[in-house]
């Protein structure tokens, strides 16, 4: 199974980034074996909508689950609507997070855990959005 983990560094020893949209890196790793791939998060510096752009970067790699610290409202709408399971990891390394996932002890996130602009360091969130679903 392919996992995506938000990470502060480029290897499995790095700690899980507690932000999603503004995470430094995304590590894509299999639940078994040692193989992994690192992608730098180009959305981290977006002036706005980082969560939405980051969700696209992650979804392009087609992971089955995402492991992160916190999830904002926009990123959570996108990921959860896309049917991707998201799990929360409190702290510790990417390696530990994978092990915890395999043991089945990680909590599943089913809605945003923080308000907008959490990872951006201040700012204000606002309401109003539309979901144009079709078919």
């Amino acid at each position: 199974m392919k996992l995506c983990l938000t990470s502060t560094g480029k290897d499995l020893e790095a700690s899980v980034d507690h932000r999603f949209g503004r995470s430094r890196y995304f590590i894509f790793a299999a639940t078994e074996g040692k193989k992994y791939r690192v992608i730098e998060n180009s959305a981290a510096s977006a002036s706005q909508g980082a969560g939405i752009r980051a969700a696209q970067i992650v979804m392009d790699q087609k992971p089955e689950a995402v492991i992160t610290g916190n999830l904002g409202p926009n990123a959570s709408s996108v990921l959860l609507n896309a049917g991707i399971k998201v799990y929360q990891h409190g702290g510790g390394s990417v390696q530990e997070a994978i092990e915890s996932f395999n043991k089945g002890v990680l909590k599943e996130i089913t809605q945003a855990t923080v308000g907008g602009h959490f990872g951006a360091g201040g700012g204000r969130g606002r309401g109003g959005r539309g979901d144009f679903s079709n078919r």
């Binding site: 909508g49 959005r129 539309g130 979901d131 679903s133 078919r135």
Partner: peptide, 30 residues
């Protein structure tokens, strides 16, 4: 009319649009 081609998402500099296989999400506040 929307066929979820994703062009609008690519052009939006402000990350307001997200196009999935079967739907388009719009984050109006952005």
């Amino acid at each position: 009319k929307c066929n979820c081609c994703g062009r609008c998402q690519q052009v939006c500099e402000f990350n307001c649009l997200f196009v999935m296989k079967d739907r388009l999400m719009f984050f109006g506040e952005l």
